[in-house]
Design a protein around this nucleic acid. Structure first.
Lengths: 338, 338
DNA sequence: GTCCTGCTTGGTAACGTTCACATGCACTTC
DNA sequence: GAAGTGCATGTGAACGTTACCAAGCAGGAC
């Protein structure tokens, strides 16, 4: 900037005014400065700028998700980024792998860079480390799951009701032996979906059969193995409720084709309509979720200091075919015997 | 930091030494400082730090992709982020939507924040605006496509050979009327894949039939419409080569079930194996691509000033079924007549 | 006792920018 | 013609940190 000032024959302050578009510079001077800027290829150092203008922010937010490679979070990230870009903000991203330690590291690196806001998919770990940054003015919004003991805006979906509807759908087609396949039970969404599963069973007067419930499936491979175990039971399930996209994929991979059991999965998948039978799913809208979270965050950054809100978006049951096998007929299917 | 210094009864310089882990502080003093840090919940301002330590970097890199919501780029992003995290770097991300203007805006916002390096999926626009930041020491790596006139490390795949192999595979099964459905022709990968298509035809002594070639398909919907046009021809194609994942999805959506034509797509898709028939694809490995790009970038950041390298990773043809219809039999298929 | 060595600690300035205020100048007002 | 008004520009300090160098002090060698 000093170089530009020298070339343009003005003080650095005047250059600052021109490159930041502030008023009070005569057109002639501004033109000379702009010419010098172009000649030298000068670009303002926004870090220095943000350091000086303390009360204004850094125009940077951060997004912390479980796994950016998961299409669900990728769609969310894109949605957040679009909202940020629209407002002239940039986005730092980090994946936690659902490990509290990595979450802490990533968030610390972000707050150390003075982000104006954080959108986080919280892990099961505590979030006391957020207290200081929040007192320092960093805004926080939780998404996908609430963070225990953290009073901030939160965007989730009706996991429990969505799962309940899915399982009720299977019950409505005559199934009574419905397996639950879920990810780690310490993940809030998984607990909620399991509760929804139990709600549906209870509404039909059915008790939970522990043999049919599998928690802690972290991968495609583990889901596939759990399925094999279920099908090896003396009385195998006639229907499956898979509690996230990864598990649904693993289960499909382990099944004959066409699938000899009814399936309803949580989370929609590309090509789900194209399977035979087409896959019935509970779908949530990651773009809406991300957009809502971003809007809440920017409202906070804009000065909104009202009480924390909790927004619950609705899931939809997309009935396509895989959940509509009648229980009676599945036992006759040749692929069904173990 | 001043507050911490006051509480610990030392100078800010000593606090700086402690929080940055520098040697030369007596254990007793260090303990007092650490206690004060905990008591006040102090966290170092890394922006101020980076401003002062000019020659060291900001430990921040940026990733600029076409569309973060595309699973291909999402996987790449996760891979880049993992490499960055491993080295204590954070990642800024931006989507260009393949618009040169948005690319410029996003990159300008990143360089203004003094990123140490950029990994970009370049749009067709010029990249002269990168010259100044590069002279200023910002390292740049291109990925997925080269940037015209920009001499930097570049990671791509063998698009042309991969497409050639895919089309040769169809030719090998007796097809002679093979349609090409591609995205915008000004995207380098699309031109390469189209060239591969032509290579395969030429190797079989076949001329290009302009009726069978569709460029510029930007969406699922447009791909579907293009397919309808192709099937309405007097002599419709008996096989399709779809030049990216989005187009493959759109085409599948527009076809009867099971598909009455042979299909090979560029880019693998989850559930591709589960379709009937399973989808034959040319697959590339986004994790390897992102990891390679990140390693090149960090080598540059680490001081490597050798001549720019161009790394070409290999694609694989995954033969699963959809490309193996014999041309003779497809004309008998009931779904085939228009 | 003097000098030197080595370690711990502090003071000052600087990174690149902008805030708050001061200055200079042309122009109006009575 | 003196004083006031308004705009364009410059000056110095500050944001939070660290590089550089100096100072203080204990312990050992002579």
């Amino acid at each position: 900037m000093k170089d530009v000032a020298r070339v343009a024959g003005v003080s650095p302050m005047t250059v600052s005014r021109v490159v930041s578009g502030e008023p009070g510079v005569s057109p002639g001077t501004a033109a000379r400065v702009e010419q010098a800027v172009r000649k030298l290829g000068y670009q303002r150092n926004d870090n220095a700028r943000n350091l000086r203008q303390k009360n204004l922010g850094t125009s940077t937010i951060a997004l912390v998700v479980d796994d950016l490679a998961n299409p669900f979070y990728a769609l969310m990230a894109r949605s957040v980024e679009d909202e940020a870009h629209r407002r002239g903000y940039v986005v730092l991203v980090g994946s936690t792998n659902d490990e509290p330690r990595r979450e802490r590291e990533v968030i610390a690196a972000f707050t150390a860079r003075q982000v104006d806001g954080l959108i986080i998919v919280p892990t099961k770990g505590g979030h006391g480390f957020l207290k200081q940054p929040m007192e320092g003015g960093t805004q926080v919004v939780c998404v996908d799951r609430p963070a225990k003991g953290l009073a901030v805006d939160t965007v989730t979906v009706d996991n429990r009701a969505g799962a309940e509807r899915a399982v009720a759908h299977l019950l409505g087609h005559g199934h009574t032996r419905i397996a639950y396949l879920g990810d780690r039970y310490d993940i809030w969404t998984q607990r909620e979906r399991h509760l929804g599963y139990l709600d549906a069973l209870a509404a039909h007067g059915l008790p939970e059969d522990p043999d049919l419930v599998r928690h802690g499936l972290r991968s495609h491979r583990e889901a596939r193995a759990a399925l094999a175990g279920l099908r090896a039971l003396d009385r195998p399930p006639t229907a499956l409720f898979t509690s996230n996209d990864l598990i649904t994929l693993g289960v499909l991979d382990g099944l004959d084709h066409p699938a000899p059991v009814a399936i309803v999965g949580f989370d929609d998948l590309p090509l789900a309509e194209r399977l035979s039978p087409p896959l019935t799913v509970v779908s949530q809208d990651p773009v809406a979720i991300g957009g809502t979270a971003a809007n809440l965050l920017f409202a906070r950054i804009g000065g909104d200091r009202s009480a924390p809100r909790s927004v619950v978006l609705l899931t939809r049951l997309l009935v396509r075919g895989s959940g509509e096998f009648r229980a009676e007929t599945t036992t006759e299917h040749p692929g069904h015997q173990r």
